[in-house]
Design a protein around this nucleic acid. Structure first.
Length: 940
RNA sequence: GCCCGGGUGGUGGAAUUGGUAGACACGCAAGACUUAAAAUCUUGUGACCAUUUGGUCGUGCGGGUUCAAGUCCCGCCCCGGGUACCA
C-alpha cells in the first residue's frame, strides 16, 4: 500500500496540465459560458504570502465546479503591473521598472503554479504591456471624443455636439459640463479653432482643466479622491495639499445616477453597495435663489430642508465662493481678506480637524429670504465646502447642528420654528414636529410643508428642484513615470489626440518625480518618443486604475491587435458571473470599472451595462506579530530581554522577531527556546551580548545553551502579514510540508471566506489527516456492489457539497468531506464506484490527489471533464413518510426528531417534550409528517 | 455622530433560517500498537451536581412573543469595518 505523497503527485500533475494545456478554453457557442474572475494582483517584490491565494482558491474551486457542471468556464489571470512600488524601486536602484516587474511576475507565476490553479495562462495580460495599454489609451481617446447627453442619458460622439453648436448654439442643449455656457450658432462659428477646442473641453468626458487637486508633495503626484484617506495619501500616508493644477479628469459625475441605479441589478454585499451609495451621495432638494440687498447678483443655495426656510437667520459662503469679493462691503474688507488669508494657508486636514470650533467672518452684506423678504446677514466660513452643492448654505440654526454652533459662536439669532422644542443646547434635527413662526406651513407635517414651500418658491421662480451628488469627477493625470502615456500632444498649448500611432512610454534616465510637479517624462527628449507631434507631448501618465478599469474585457480576446476585443467574443463571454476580491476596492476600482463599462455600453461596444454580476469579497488573512520585550534599562551596559508575562507598563521596547524562531507562533503562549534565542541573536547581531531574564534569573546566550528547558515568552499581537513584521508565510513552504491540496483545503477550512482572520497553522494537521485518510480509503476500496449504506453517505454528501459550493460556504464543504470519509471508514468495505464519485466532488478543492485517483481508476480524461454527480433522493425514501391520524388543517407544529424513528416511535417522541406535550394535551393530533432530513410536522 | 457587519466551549467555527445548540477540526486527557519516539487507531471532552438511570444551567446583558428562540420583537453593552462639517 502506497502512502499519500503530495509532493510527487502534485509536481506530476502540474507538469501534465501545463503540457496538455488542460485549462485553456475556447469560445463554444454550443456550451453555456461561465466567467469567474479574480482581482488581478499587483506583482510586488514581496511575492505572495498565504493570505493572497485565499480568493484565488475560492474562485478556482468555483470555476472547477462549474466546469464539472458542463459550463464553458473562463477563468483567467493577469497582472496589474503599472504602479508606484515598481517605480519607487526604480528610483532607488535605477533599474527600469519593466525589469523588476518582469522579475516579480515570474516569481508570482512560480508561486501560483504550485497551488494548482486552473487558470488559462494563454490569456494572461499585463497592464504595462504596450499591446494592452494600447487599448487603455484607445478608451481614453473615446472618452476624449465623447460628451454626455443628459436628456438621453448617454454618451455621444463629440462631432454631434459640434453640429449642434453649428446649428443651434447652446439652445436646447442638455449636456454634462464643467461650466454652463450660453452662445449662439453665429458666435460658435466665429470662434477660432483654439477657442472651439476650449469650449469643447467643457463637455468632453475626458477633459483638461485647471482644478483643485489633491497634491502629494512626497509622492510628487496628484491623487484621486479615493486615494486620499484622512487627509493623507492611502499609499505611504504622506500629507496631501490642495493645489490648483492643469489636470486631465474623467467626467464620472455624468454617470452618477446610472451608477446608483445599476447597484440594484448586481449581487454585491449590502455593505459594499452602501459604500458606493454613500460615495455617490445622491440627495434631492431645492436650489433656491437668494437676492442680495442692493446688489444685482443672486446667491444660489442648495438645501434638502426647504421646510425650515422660515428659520434661516444667516447665510454662509465658502471662502472660495466667487461672490465673496464682490459682495463684501468696504467696512468689512480687511476682516474678510485676513480671514481668507488664514484659511488659504490651512490644508484640507487642518480645515477638517476644526469641527465644533466654527470660524468665520461677516461680509457686511445681506441677502433676502425669498419666502418673506427678511434681511439675512451673509457670512463666510470654512465649514462650507466649495466643492459641494453651490458652495453656499442657508443657515438654519434651529434645524442644523453646524449652523447652530456657528450662531452660538457669533451671537446670531436662533429662530425657533419647531413647536414645543427647546433650543437651549442643541439644534433639533428630527422631522417629526409641528412648525411655528412659519406662516405658510403651520400645522402641516414634514412632507406637506416641504411640498408647500417647494411649490411656492418654484411658482415665484425663486427655486428649482435639484438632485445633488457628492461624486466628483476623477482626476486622471499622475506625475509619475510607470503608467500609460497619454496619446495627446500640444500645439499652442491646446491638446490634440494622437490616433494613428500608439504612443509608447519613452525611456528616461531618471524616474524621480520633481517637487514642483513636473513629471519624469519631462526628461525624455524629442528623440526618445516614438511619436512626437506639435510643440510638446503630454508628460503626465494615467493613474493605476486606468488599466484595471477594463481588463476583464481583454481576457476575452487578449491577443486581438485590431480591437479591444472582438464583438463576437464580447457577446459570448459577456458579464463576469462571479468576481472575487477584496472589499477595499469598493469606491475605487469597482466604481471606475462600472463607469467604463457603462461608457463602452453607450458606445455600443458591449451589450451589458454592469461588468460584474456577483461579487464575493474575501476577507484578509492577517498575521501574528511576535515581539521580544527589551527592557528600557540596560544591565551593566547590556540589553536585557524579559518574558512578555513579566512586563510592566511601558518599561520595555518591542523588538519584532522573525516567526521562524518562535515556537507556538500566534498563540498566547508563544516562546523562544534557548536554541531559538541563539538563532535570534545570530539574526540580530546587535543583541549577541544581550541578557535574558527568565524566572527572575539573568542568562547570557551561552548559559542558556546549557539549559534547554528554559522558555522566553514573546508578545503576540495581531496585524498585517508583511515583511516589515517578519511574519510572512510563503505558501510554498506549506506546500513543501503538506502539499498544495492541503493548503487549498486548509485555507477554505479556516472559516467563512468573507471573514478577516489571522493565519495560524493550528488545524492544518486535521486537514492533512483527512487527505491521508482519503488516500488510504481509496487504497483499500474494492470493486464491489455499492451498499445502500455507502450510497446514503455519498448522496448526503453530494447534496450538501453542491449546495454549499453554490452558496460559497467552502468551509463547511470540507467538514462534509471529513464526515463522509469517517463514515465510510467505519464500514467494513467501500466500493471503487463510490470512491469514483467522491473524487469528482473533491476535485475542485484538492485537484492533484483527485486527478491521481481518477487516473488510477482507469480514466483517461481529466477530473475537470467528469460530470458533476447528481443528488439522488431515492436513497432516503424509506425514512420519509406520513403518519396520518386525521387532518383538519388548522395548525402546524414542527418538531425536531431523530430520523431513524419508526412510525410507532414518532408519537412517543413527540410527547416526550414536556412543554409540547402539555400544549398538545387538549388537542387531537391529526397527522404527523416525517420528511427526509430531521423535521417532523405535527398537524393538530 | 451616522451607516453596515458581528458577539456561540480552551481555540477555529457548525446549526436545515423558529425545532435535540456546540457538527467538523484543533487542543487536551486516557488507552492500543511500539524497546522508544513519530505515525496511526480507539474512547472521552460546554459547565455544575448525581457520577449508574439522570438532573440543572448554558449562544454578550435585561425584558418580551411562542408549545418551542442562537435565530423573531423592544431596550442596553461590547467588538470589527466604512464614512463624515455633504447643507
Amino acid at each position: 500500500m502506497t502512502t499519500y505523497n503530495p509532493k510527487e503527485i502534485e509536481s506530476k500533475w502540474q507538469s501534465f496540465w501545463r503540457k496538455e494545456k488542460t485549462f485553456s478554453v475556447k469560445e463554444d457557442p454550443n456550451k453555456k459560458k461561465y466567467y469567474v474572475l479574480d482581482m488581478f494582483p499587483y506583482p510586488s517584490g514581496e511575492g505572495l504570502h498565504v493570505g493572497h491565494p485565499l480568493g484565488y482558491i475560492a474562485s478556482d474551486i468555483f470555476a472547477r465546479f462549474k466546469k464539472h457542471q458542463g459550463y464553458n468556464v473562463l477563468h483567467p489571470m493577469g497582472y496589474d503591473s503599472f504602479g508606484l512600488p515598481a517605480e519607487q524601486y526604480a528610483i532607488q536602484t535605477g533599474q527600469h521598472p519593466a525589469l523588476t516587474t518582469e522579475k516579480n511576475i515570474n516569481r508570482y507565476r512560480q508561486q501560483l503554479d504550485r497551488l494548482g490553479f486552473a487558470f488559462d495562462w494563454d490569456r494572461e495580460i499585463r497592464t504595462s504591456d504596450p499591446s494592452y495599454y494600447k487599448w487603455t489609451q484607445w478608451i481614453f481617446l473615446q472618452l476624449f471624443d465623447s460628451w454626455y447627453d443628459v436628456a438621453e442619458k448617454k454618451a455621444k460622439p463629440i462631432s454631434k455636439l459640434v453640429s449642434h453648436f453649428e446649428n443651434h448654439g447652446t439652445q436646447n442643449l442638455l449636456a454634462s459640463c464643467t461650466k454652463e455656457l450660453v452662445f449662439s450658432p453665429k458666435k460658435w462659428n466665429a470662434y477660432s479653432t483654439e477657442n472651439k477646442e476650449k469650449v469643447l473641453m467643457n463637455y468632453r468626458l475626458a477633459y483638461l482643466s485647471m482644478s483643485q487637486v489633491n497634491w502629494c508633495p512626497e509622492l510628487g503626484t496628484v491623487l484621486a479622491n479615493d486615494e486620499v484617506k484622512d487627509g493623507v495619501s492611502e499609499r505611504g500616508g504622506y500629507p496631501v495639499e490642495q493645489k490648483e493644477m492643469m489636470q486631465w479628469s474623467l467626467r464620472i459625475s455624468s454617470y452618477a445616477q446610472r451608477l446608483l441605479d445599476g447597484l440594484d441589478q448586481v449581487d454585491f454585499t449590502p455593505s459594499l453597495k452602501e459604500q458606493q451609495r454613500n460615495w455617490i451621495g445622491r440627495s434631492e432638494g431645492l436650489l433656491i435663489d437668494f437676492e442680495i440687498e442692493a446688489q444685482p447678483q443672486i446667491i444660489k443655495v442648495f438645501t434638502t430642508r426647504p421646510d425650515t426656510i422660515y428659520g434661516v437667520s444667516f447665510m454662509t459662503l465658502a471662502p472660495e465662493h466667487h461672490l465673496v469679493q464682490q459682495i463684501t462691503t468696504d467696512e468689512y474688507k480687511t476682516d474678510v481678506l485676513s480671514y481668507l488669508d488664514v484659511v488659504s494657508k490651512k490644508n484640507e486636514r487642518e480645515r477638517q480637524s476644526n469641527v465644533g470650533n466654527p470660524t468665520g467672518v461677516f461680509t457686511g452684506a445681506y441677502a433676502l429670504n425669498p419666502i418673506n423678504n427678511e434681511k439675512i446677514p451673509i457670512w463666510i466660513s470654512e465649514y462650507v465646502l466649495y466643492g459641494y452643492g453651490t458652495g453656499a448654505v442657508m443657515a438654519v440654526p434651529a434645524g442644523d447642528q453646524r449652523d447652530y454652533d456657528f450662531a452660538k459662536e457669533f451671537n446670531i439669532e436662533i429662530k425657533n420654528i419647531f413647536k414645543g422644542v427647546s433650543l437651549a443646547s442643541n439644534a433639533y434635527v428630527e422631522k417629526d414636529v409641528e412648525y411655528i413662526n412659519s406662516p405658510a406651513i403651520e400645522g402641516l407635517n414634514y412632507e406637506d410643508a416641504t411640498d408647500v414651500i417647494m411649490t411656492t418658491l418654484i411658482q415665484k421662480k425663486k427655486a428649482t428642484k435639484k438632485v445633488n451628488f457628492r461624486l466628483r469627477d476623477a482626476i486622471f493625470s499622475r506625475q509619475r513615470y510607470w503608467g500609460e502615456p497619454f496619446p495627446i500632444f500640444y500645439k499652442n498649448s491646446t491638446p490634440y489626440p494622437i490616433k494613428d500611432t500608439q504612443v509608447l512610454l519613452p525611456k528616461v534616465d531618471k524616474y524621480l518625480p520633481t517637487k514642483d510637479g513636473r513629471p519624469p517624462l519631462g526628461r525624455a527628449g524629442r528623440e526618445d518618443w516614438n511619436v512626437f507631434l506639435g510643440d510638446q507631448m503630454e508628460l503626465n501618465t494615467m493613474p493605476g486604475w486606468a488599466g484595471s478599469s477594463w481588463y476583464f474585457l481583454r481576457y476575452m480576446d487578449p491577443k486581438n491587435e485590431n480591437e479591444l476585443a472582438s464583438a463576437e467574443k464580447l457577446t459570448y463571454w459577456n458579464q463576469v458571473d462571479l468576481y472575487v476580491g477584496g472589499a477595499e476596492h469598493a469606491v475605487g476600482h469597482l466604481l471606475y470599472s462600472r463607469f467604463w463599462t457603462k461608457f463602452l455600453y453607450d458606445l455600443n461596444i458591449i451589450s451589458f451595462e454592469e461588468p460584474f454580476k456577483k461579487l464575493l469579497n474575501q476577507g484578509m488573512i492577517g498575521g501574528a506579530i511576535e515581539s521580544l520585550c527589551l527592557k528600557k534599562e540596560k544591565k551593566d551596559g547590556k540589553p536585557v530581554f524579559i518574558c512578555s508575562s513579566q512586563i510592566d507598563n511601558n518599561q520595555f521596547v518591542k523588538i519584532p522577531c522573525h516567526i521562524d524562531f518562535v515556537s507556538d507562533y500566534g498563540t498566547k503562549n508563544s516562546y523562544l527556546t534557548p536554541n531559538q534565542i541563539a538563532e535570534f541573536t545570530h539574526w540580530r547581531p546587535e543583541f549577541k551580548d544581550a541578557l535574558f531574564e527568565i524566572n527572575n534569573e539573568l542568562y547570557s546566550v551561552s548559559e542558556l545553551a546549557k539549559d534547554t528547558s528554559q522558555k522566553l515568552y514573546t508578545l503576540t499581537e495581531h496585524g498585517k502579514m508583511s515583511k516589515r513584521y517578519f511574519n510572512t508565510i510563503d505558501p510554498e513552504k506549506i506546500c513543501d510540508t503538506y502539499g498544495a491540496d492541503t493548503l487549498r483545503c486548509y485555507e477554505m477550512f479556516l472559516g467563512p471566506i468573507e471573514e478577516h482572520k489571522p493565519w495560524n497553522v493550528n488545524g492544518i494537521s486535521g486537514v492533512f489527516g483527512f487527505l491521508k485518510k482519503t488516500w488510504a480509503l481509496f487504497q483499500q476500496a474494492k470493486q464491489e456492489e455499492q451498499t445502500k449504506e455507502e450510497l446514503k453517505t455519498l448522496h448526503k454528501t453530494i447534496k450538501k457539497v453542491t449546495e454549499d459550493i453554490e452558496n460559497h460556504s467552502f468551509n463547511t464543504v470540507i467538514s462534509t468531506f471529513m464526515i463522509a470519509v469517517n463514515e465510510w471508514n467505519k464500514l467494513p468495505q467501500i466500493s471503487l464506484k463510490t470512491m469514483e464519485t467522491f473524487t469528482v466532488l473533491l476535485s475542485p478543492f484538492a485537484p492533484h490527489i483527485s486527478e491521481e485517483i481518477w487516473k488510477k481508476l482507469g480514466y483517461e480524461s481529466t477530473v475537470s471533464k467528469a460530470p458533476w454527480p447528481l443528488f439522488d433522493e431515492s436513497f432516503f425514501e424509506e425514512s420519509s413518510y406520513e403518519y396520518p391520524i386525521s387532518f383538519n388543517g388548522k395548525m402546524r407544529y414542527k418538531l425536531a426528531l431523530p430520523l431513524s424513528l419508526t412510525k410507532d416511535e414518532v408519537e412517543i417522541e413527540v410527547l416526550k417534550n414536556e412543554k409540547t406535550k402539555k400544549h398538545l394535551a387538549d388537542k387531537e393530533i391529526k397527522r404527523v409528517i416525517v420528511v427526509p432530513g430531521k423535521i417532523v410536522n405535527i398537524v393538530v
